[in-house]
């Protein structure tokens, strides 16, 4: 049985996914990846090994802010830890998360 805990990386840029994944895998984490919220949601629904989400904030269509609020307002994923990943560390932006 493959029941190792996994981290889900959500980022619309495959290069960021690749970089994050390499770092995390080297430290022994299993990673799933998605390039948008819709795909991320599909993965979360079927893969219960995911225990943490790394969420890019700047994404087209549904961005990270909206993704997080959608997940937090659902019964299923309200307790799932999500770490926002962004290059924009301004205080104003931080407050929005």
């Amino acid at each position: 049985m493959n029941q190792k805990n996994a981290i889900l990386i959500v980022d619309d840029d495959p290069r960021n996914i690749f970089a994050l994944k390499m770092v995390l895998k080297a430290r022994g984490f299993d990673c799933e990846t998605a390039t948008n919220f819709e795909d991320a949601h599909k993965i979360l629904i079927s893969n219960h090994n995911v225990k943490l989400v790394l969420m890019d904030m700047m994404m087209p269509d549904i961005d990270g802010y909206e993704s997080i609020s959608k997940l937090k307002s659902s019964e299923e994923f309200k307790n799932l830890p999500i770490i926002a990943v962004t290059a924009q560390a301004m205080i104003v932006i931080k407050r929005n998360v």
Partner: peptide
């Protein structure tokens, strides 16, 4: 299709993604 992720991928130039 609820459990399907559709995405472009070029076998010639793109890397393994999972």
């Amino acid at each position: 299709r609820k459990n399907v992720i559709f995405s472009t991928h070029n076998l010639v130039s793109d890397r393994s993604f999972n």
